[in-house]
């Protein structure tokens, strides 16, 4: 009886998931096969929207940018976050204050982060202008206005936002490492850096994976930081897939194209998530 009441209690949740999530996904996939513009038109045109989608250089640029951003952002956050965690783990004074400072950027929305960094990096009013004002007139830091470097400017802002979060998780992980291991290392006179590299890091792999998965969702849905920082520019240099979907859905009244783009994004997420889920399931089975 107990089981049945639990099932009844879960029913509404299940219904919501089925209609809102699965239903919307199926509808989106369906719409991507129609010529719909501003309004849904239920007329089958096959993969026409997808063909047009991949003919658009903005879409292909967006995909590449997402991968570049994902790699730089996740890699940067993990590296910097780990360094900060190790630093704090050295029993430094004012640990609480430092931890708060490091974690603080994560409390800000991507919109605020993007705006602030847009000002900092703007060549006419940010760092470049400041340093030149100090007398170093040859100083140049204009990544945000250069099509070839603008994506890296966005990555820097992203790392600033996410590194503290990674630090918090990894610090908890570090504190979880058995102190006996450290004692043993001290007796064997193993230098600290070797301990971190060869012993502690392998122990923390599951934490790293968790961080990477959480950050990758940010990378895939990245929209607000780009809108606030560069609006996709200069040109189309920092366009991302989520922004493509939003623009085609609203600005460009092209529901079909937007749905096709969203479907491709979904497939990419599945392509990344499926092996992870499969590996986890296999591991659980033993």
């Amino acid at each position: 009886m107990k089981i049945r009441s639990a099932q009844v209690a879960l029913l509404p949740m299940f219904a919501i998931v089925a209609t809102v999530y699965v239903g919307s996904i199926l509808w989106t996939i369906g719409i991507s096969l129609t010529p719909s513009r501003s309004l849904p038109i239920y007329e089958f045109v096959g993969l026409e929207q997808y063909v047009a989608l991949f003919r658009s250089s903005r879409w292909t640029t967006s995909l590449v940018n997402m991968l570049v951003f994902g790699a730089g952002y996740i890699g940067g956050c993990l590296a910097l976050g780990y360094l900060m965690a190790i630093f704090i783990d050295q029993k430094v004074r004012a640990e609480n204050a430092l931890r708060t400072i490091f974690l603080y950027p994560h409390a800000m929305s991507f919109i605020v982060t993007g705006l602030v960094w847009q000002w900092i990096m703007s060549p006419t009013e940010g760092i470049q202008d400041f340093v030149r004002g100090l007398g170093l007139t040859g100083f140049t830091f204009d990544w945000i206005v250069r099509p070839d470097m603008a994506m890296y400017a966005v990555i820097i802002a992203g790392i600033w936002h996410g590194a503290g979060f990674v630090m918090a998780l990894l610090l908890a992980g570090l504190r979880g490492v058995d102190t006996e291991i450290w004692k043993a290392a001290r007796i064997d006179a193993v230098p600290a850096w070797r301990m971190y590299l060869h012993v502690v890091t392998p122990i923390l792999v599951p934490v790293f994976v968790t961080c990477a998965v959480l950050l990758s969702t940010h990378a895939i849905k990245s929209y607000d930081i780009v809108v606030a920082m560069t609006k996709g520019g200069p040109g189309i240099a920092t366009e991302v897939p989520a922004k493509f979907v939003m623009d085609y859905l609203f600005e460009r009244s092209s529901v079909g194209r937007a749905a096709a783009a969203a479907t491709v994004m979904l497939m990419m997420v599945m392509a990344v998530a499926a092996p992870v889920l499969y590996a986890r399931a296999a591991a659980a089975k033993g």
């Binding site: 658009s56 189309i236 460009r252 092209s254």
Partner: peptide
């Protein structure tokens, strides 16, 4: 608007 948007993307890319 989808065609106009693509033209806008291209011209903006060309400019930059």
């Amino acid at each position: 608007s989808s065609v106009a948007g693509e033209i806008q993307d291209l011209i903006s890319q060309f400019w930059n």
